[in-house]
Amino acid sequence: MKGTTFQIKNMVCPRCITVISSELDALGVQYEIDRLGEITLFDPDQVDMAAVKQVLAKHDFELIQDKDEQLVEQVKLAVLDLVQGNVVTNLRNSDYIAERVGQSYSALSKTFSRRENVTIEKYIILQKIEKVKELLEYGELNLSEIARKLGYSSVHHLSNQFKSVTGLTVNQYKESEDRERSSLGKA
């Protein structure tokens, strides 16, 4: 069956697939989800796209039709896979992202920076710090284990980056009553 493939903004976890599937099933839409951030709608001429967009928006998802925005979302999903440890690669982050998205890193970097007002490198750091916060909340790993898990060269490097991004030391963050966290995948 022939369909049209769309990118979906903010579709970053298996729970997102469940929510989107449930909503599209309720609308009677024929679809297939191949991977996070991507959906194929079959017979899109017969689909009430306004209804699809509305149910997606209800859960903070969005159909992406702009090519640059699609590239940005693909970069974000690649970064999320790296940070979450969903991929094991010997490639540098930049090489993995370029290979995954299928474009030169230079072109991706320019588009990403222009659209998000942050470099891919800075975005990776922000996502890693959010993952550090999450792991600290769980309390299952010590800082050395977290540093190793997220590919930091040392606890010192992680600690410096954490303080630079949050304004707090790791200990200050752990002792804080107001531990603000952002969703992974958000800039």
Rank of each mutant, 00 (worst) to 15 (best):
T169A: 08
L56S: 05
D66P: 08
L63W: 07
S159T: 14
K76H: 13
K67V: 07
I64M: 09
V75F: 04
Y96R: 01
Y152N: 03
I120F: 00
A98M: 04
A78R: 01
E180K: 06
V12S: 03
N86T: 12
I125G: 05
A26V: 08
V79L: 14
L27A: 13
E69G: 12
S106Y: 13
E32M: 13
N86V: 09
L108T: 08
L56D: 01
N117L: 13
K149T: 08
K110F: 13
K9W: 15
Q74R: 11
G151K: 01
L36Y: 07
G185L: 11
V72Q: 03
V88L: 11
K149N: 13
A187I: 14
L150G: 00
M11R: 00
D48S: 09
T166R: 03
H59N: 15
V79D: 01
I124P: 00
I33G: 02
Y152G: 01
Q54W: 10
S21R: 05
G37K: 03
R100A: 12
T111Q: 09
D25K: 10
N93F: 04
K110M: 12
I20G: 00
K2P: 10
G102V: 04
Q103N: 09
Y173V: 09
V132Y: 03
T119D: 13
L136H: 02
I97G: 01
H59E: 13
T89I: 05
D60P: 06
L184N: 07
Y138E: 12
T169W: 09
Q84W: 11
Q70N: 10
I146G: 00
R15W: 15
C13I: 07
C16K: 03
Q30E: 14
T5P: 01
S104V: 02
L71N: 02
E116I: 10
V83F: 07
L82Y: 12
G151D: 07
P14F: 14
K128Q: 14
P44I: 04
Q70K: 15
A78G: 06
V118N: 08
E69L: 13
Q103T: 08
R100L: 09
L56Q: 03
N160A: 09
E130S: 01
L24R: 02
F42N: 02
Y96E: 07
L63S: 06
